[in-house]
């Protein structure tokens, strides 16, 4: 089994953004820079909130459009960033239909969720959770595995 971050019930979200601050705190600082999870209103607070997380896709579109293989499919699911290969083209941002590839403007590189679940431990209302899912593939089956 592998783990990914999952939005369990977005209707319980109160928009406190404690998850975003937690993610940034993991990097050793305060504020919001570097957060890989994003909470915004669904078109005004009266309509509730949208919680954007990396879904750890089995065949991640963000990796498919990376020209330098800096974003590589993780074994089983999701992606991993090899920052030294990234040229900051931003194709990955465009490719993700959820807008879950957030951008580090200082480094000019994507911010990629590592599925640590730290954010979920600060969600007071069980909106998000680290979830165990079936691995979609083995290393041999990976679409972009080296020949």
């Amino acid at each position: 089994m592998v783990k990914r971050l999952s939005v369990v019930d977005v209707d319980r979200c109160v928009g406190c953004q404690a998850c975003m601050f937690a993610c940034a705190r993991q990097l050793g600082h305060g504020g919001l820079d570097g957060a890989c999870i994003h909470v915004r209103s669904a078109g005004g607070i009266r309509k509730g909130f949208v919680v954007i997380v990396c879904r750890a896709c089995p065949d991640p579109p963000c990796a498919r459009v990376c020209p330098t293989d800096a974003l590589r499919p993780r074994e089983e699911r999701g992606v991993r960033l090899k920052a030294d290969l990234c040229i900051g083209c931003g194709n990955c941002v465009q490719a993700c239909p959820f807008g879950a590839v957030l951008w580090d403007r200082e480094q000019n590189k994507p911010q990629i969720c590592v599925y640590c679940g730290y954010c979920a431990s600060y969600c007071p209302y069980e909106v998000i959770a680290l979830e165990e899912v079936e691995p979609i593939r083995t290393t041999e089956e990976m679409p972009h595995a080296a020949p």
Binding site: V14, C16, I45, Y122
Partner: peptide, 15 residues
């Protein structure tokens, strides 16, 4: 709906 101010887990705002 209950909502919160940014960075407040209490969410006292009642709609």
């Amino acid at each position: 709906r209950r909502v919160a101010c940014a960075h407040c887990p209490v969410a006292c705002i009642h709609l």
